[in-house]
Design a protein around this nucleic acid. Structure first.
Length: 418
DNA sequence: CACCGTCAAGTCGCA
DNA sequence: TGCGACTTGACGGTG
């Protein structure tokens, strides 16, 4: 069982993906962007290895305009060494990667032009994974597409166009149920017909369920049959609804108790779970810790070192409770720990608590800061107190201090990222 | 340096 | 027939 996250990281330095608008594209610009993005990808992979995250979705934005005529540089040649180096790290660590073209890659469109571009886009995604030299268990996930007033015909177009794809693309392509057009029953029928694997997405299934009354575990077990040995373990997508936003919006963080409930219902380990959630790697680490058989409180202490100032800012009560919870070093109170973190994160941040946390962090610099820095910081605090500055101004100021004085503990803190 | 409109994509609902 | 909403993070121009 591997648990992973998609595309971006929170709180990991030098992992940002750059892009540009299409009118500004030129060769020099593209080389610069791609070089930056491959470095970022390598840093993400390094982070994943270090944190025992074995599943990761590579962003389609890795190569800007990767499937567009706007980008005609042979990036796979120019950067072949870099790709191979990253690919080695992926394989040596046993990580599994994937890619997922967006909602605008539509293979079953009635427009030949749209289909052509979808095929080009799938080729691009294949080229990225091939350049990494990773095997066919590293997949490209696609939705079926639109309906166009005739679902049966639309499905036939998908099947025909799939058959026209290059073999290297077919080897990696898997299909997923979506939130409005093709439910899991539809996608399973297509997957069985084409003999390709099907990804079950729990939130899409909840929003757009099949008329056939089947619980999600039964659907997951049905999907398992479509995964052949060369495809690797079955993969599913797991996400939770953000109750403050419209139907289908992903939650900020995975709720540990909901996830564990789902995980226990699965009742098996031969399955990989891709989390789709705003806080990305944070939820991945959380779910990995919640399901770990290696129960060492050190894992929670490491987590606490990153969360603590954010928790202090959100809820001083939960802060104290967590400190007490972690006192017994022979225990592994993982569910209680994350429950308290989640409680804290749901709290509204008050001005008093925000200042308290900021001053607490300021304590790290009390002895080393110059008089000028002290004056400047206290002035910002006053401005914030009087409603003349945003909290971000305080945080930016503290962040700059952390960078300047190389306070590694603070540089890793989610206080600055969440 | 903070802020916010724009971008890039295809589909679908609505006038 | 054509236009706006939908979605997302980053760009890029403005103040």
């Amino acid at each position: 069982m591997s648990i992973g996250y998609a595309c971006l990281t929170i709180g990991v330095l030098n992992t940002n993906l750059k892009s540009c608008v299409i009118k500004n594209v030129n060769e020099e610009k593209l080389l610069d962007l791609i070089s930056n993005n491959l470095n970022s990808l390598e840093n993400i992979i390094d982070y994943n290895v270090k944190n025992n995250i074995q599943l990761f979705r590579i962003s389609s934005d890795l190569i800007p305009f990767g499937s567009s005529p706007a980008n005609n540089i042979p990036w796979w040649n120019i950067f072949s060494e870099k790709f191979e180096q990253i690919g080695m790290k992926i394989q040596e660590s046993g990580m599994r990667v994937s890619m997922h073209p967006g909602q605008y890659t539509v293979l079953n469109s009635p427009s030949l032009d749209v289909v052509h571009r979808a095929m080009e886009d799938l080729k691009y995604h294949t080229k990225v994974l091939d350049s990494l030299r990773v095997g066919t268990e590293h997949k490209i996930v696609l939705h079926i597409g639109g309906i166009y007033n005739d679902k049966k015909q639309a499905i036939d177009r998908f099947i025909n166009n799939y058959n026209d794809l290059e073999e290297s693309v077919k080897q990696r392509l898997v299909i997923e149920n979506d939130d409005k057009s093709y439910n899991i029953k539809d996608v399973l029928e297509i997957g069985i017909k084409l003999n390709i694997p099907v990804i079950f997405d729990n939130l899409h299934n909840y929003i757009n369920s099949s008329k056939e009354e089947k619980n999600q575990i039964d659907w997951i077990n049905e999907c398992k049959k479509t995964w052949r040995p060369k495809d690797g373990n079955q993969k599913i997508h797991y996400s939770e609804q953000n109750i403050l936003k419209k139907t289908g919006s992903h939650s900020n963080s995975i709720k540990s108790n909901q996830f564990i409930n789902f995980y226990e219902c699965l009742g098996r380990n031969d399955i990989d779970i891709m989390l789709e959630v705003k806080d990305k790697n944070l939820s991945a680490v959380k779910c990995i810790n919640c399901t770990s058989t290696y129960k060492d409180i050190k894992a929670l202490e490491l987590e606490w070192s990153k969360y603590k100032y954010k928790v202090l800012e959100s809820s001083p009560n939960d802060y104290v409770e967590i400190r007490n919870l972690l006192k017994d070093k022979n225990n592994y109170p993982v569910m209680e720990f994350y429950k308290l973190i989640e409680n804290a994160m749901d709290e509204e941040i008050t001005i008093g608590n925000a200042i308290n946390a900021a001053l607490h962090i300021w304590g790290c610099f009390k002895k080393i800061a110059s008089d000028k820095e002290k004056m400047s910081f206290m002035k910002i605090i006053d401005e914030y107190k009087n409603g003349n500055a945003a909290i971000s101004k305080i945080k930016n100021s503290l962040w700059k201090m952390a960078v300047k004085y190389e306070e590694q503990y603070l540089l890793n803190s989610y206080y600055f990222m969440l």
